[in-house]
Design a binder for these strands. Structure first.
Ligand SMILES: NC(=O)c1ccc[n+]([C@@H]2O[C@H](COP(=O)([O-])OP(=O)(O)OC[C@H]3O[C@@H](n4cnc5c(N)ncnc54)[C@H](O)[C@@H]3O)[C@@H](O)[C@H]2O)c1
Ligand SMILES: NC(=O)c1ccc[n+]([C@@H]2O[C@H](COP(=O)([O-])OP(=O)(O)OC[C@H]3O[C@@H](n4cnc5c(N)ncnc54)[C@H](O)[C@@H]3O)[C@@H](O)[C@H]2O)c1
Lengths: 244, 244
DNA sequence: CCTTCATTGTGACGTGTTTCACAAGCGAGT
DNA sequence: ACTCGCTTGTGAAACACGTCACAATGAAGG
């Protein structure tokens, strides 16, 4: 059950499980408070999950050369309340100016720093079937701090094949490659039945975040975050609301 | 902002927006309570989103020929607490037996009825680029009450192409096709910039549930449920928790 | 420098969700 | 028929999260 923490399974679906003390206050502390270094605040995972949307929306404002934005306007764009945005941001500090709002570029950079998006994360991708190929060729990740750095499969027929300029490697090498390259993010695109064993290997390799496309709940240690991508569950929960 | 209700945007990410009075108690009432037909209970969307996982897990128990299961064991399999499962189910009625647990087949059927999965839902899929092709060929949907019944794109170069035995149709026909065939579920796989206009057309066609793969928050009327599939946001929120 | 205006950041409050804990009920065994 | 052990269903309590509402404050303009 610790595995469920911060996980989309019951989450993408269910939704909001967060067994552990949530998150620790991780941004650089303001200088004024030297005493409280250990008094870390626990930030709700709900809040963390909203931050990427804030970033995305701020980026679209940047493209339009908007210099600043009020919580009111940002809220309208995103579809939440202004109070929620202000509250969310207040977990991390004070970034706005009264009467003015938030500087778009500054806020966007700040949230990216909070989320540790001001760097690149290498990822391994396991399971190079149809979905794995699609993911490996997807351009959307690179634009967002994440880079697929290794492709893996058990099937000797596909091992060696080049996909998007990278060779598919045997699963036997996964742990070694992850350790040698300090890779802490993994994507699982194997069949359902092999997902758990794949997750176990990733854990052995030092994974800290897993994006799981297989329709199973993964059992992982507490320090590993899992998010599920599960369109079928999404559809199945929506059908409840359809009339007639 | 009503558009956000029950939506994964801030939800898959953010996570748990639910502006409206949630859901109405929709399962057939037990015969004993004739008075309260109008006293409909509002069921939290969180609960609804967990139900597909319950169903999935029950199916895997069925495969193993387990005749019954306790909330304790089910909870262990799913990674939630037993109390949560019992509470969730109690929104809909009493399905277990003291000392025994739940009949796997019966509970699974019951939840499927609640979610309206005891029938087939036709879907339209808009945007037949790389992702659209992958979705159209994905076999996972059919196993789960959802069937892609129409493919649409604006690009005249791809219109007419056969994908998985279905022709890609022009977007101009979308509304007509949806209405004539009473299709109430849509999948959006268009570029980001065209997602809102596509959603608008689906609404015109009578859509009630949209699965949105484009990274934008859609604005839709209150009676439409939207769920986002957004792996990038999922990764971006997980990176917050990665140490070093 | 003072006034006005807009908008933040946050206590206090309210609602929603989860967990606790236990009386009630079923079934097996005697 | 009675007892025992197990497990449900659910009030009540705890906790988490979202919203209200307003004092505080920066900026702009006189
Ligand atoms: N979430 C989504 O959007 C989505 C979409 C499509 C598929 N899926 C899921 O993704 C998974 C893969 O789907 P697919 O259509 O690509 O299937 P597929 O059968 O085409 O590919 C599976 C691949 O995984 C490899 N594999 C098997 N065991 C492995 C292991 N232990 N380690 C590494 N690789 C292993 C196989 O050799 C194969 O290449 C399935 O679980 C499916 O349900 C999810
Ligand atoms: N969520 C995910 O897992 C995921 C994965 C990959 C891509 N995406 C997103 O899905 C979308 C499509 O990605 P892709 O790689 O297939 O892009 P693509 O460019 O290959 O395909 C887009 C298709 O949409 C069509 N289109 C454009 N405007 C349209 C309109 N108004 N109505 C109908 N069709 C229209 C285009 O003709 C094209 O065929 C993008 O928004 C991308 O960000 C999401």
């Amino acid at each position: 059950m610790p595995a469920i923490a911060r996980t989309n399974p019951i989450d993408q679906l269910p939704e909001t499980r967060d067994v552990r003390p949530s998150a620790k206050f991780g941004i650089d502390m303001d200088l004024d408070d030297e005493v409280d270094e250990l008094a870390q605040l626990s930030i709700p995972d709900v809040v963390i999950r909203r931050l990427p949307i804030y970033v995305r929306t701020l980026h679209s404002l940047l493209e339009k050369n908007e210099p600043s934005v009020s919580s009111e306007e940002l809220a309208r764009l995103i579809g939440v309340t202004a109070a929620q945005i202000r509250r969310d941001l207040s977990y991390f500090g004070k970034f706005g100016k009264q009467g003015k709002g938030y500087d778009v570029g500054y806020l966007s950079n700040t949230i990216e720093r909070i989320l540790k998006l001001d760097r690149t994360w290498d990822m391994v991708l396991c399971g190079m079937g149809k979905l794995g190929h699609a993911i490996a060729n997807y351009r959307g990740f690179t634009r967002s701090s994440f880079v697929i750095a290794g492709l893996f499969d058990t099937d000797s027929d596909v091992v060696g094949e080049m996909v998007n300029d990278m060779p598919i490697q045997p699963m036997a090498d996964l742990v070694k490659v992850m350790r040698e390259n300090h890779i802490s993010v993994g994507i699982i695109a194997t069949p359902r039945k092999n997902a758990q064993e794949t997750a176990d290997l990733m854990v052995e390799g030092g994974v800290q975040a897993i994006l799981n496309y297989a329709p199973v709940i993964l059992r992982v240690p507490d320090h590993v975050t899992v998010r599920e991508i599960d369109p079928v569950s999404a559809l199945q929960s929506m059908s409840y609301y359809i009339n007639e």
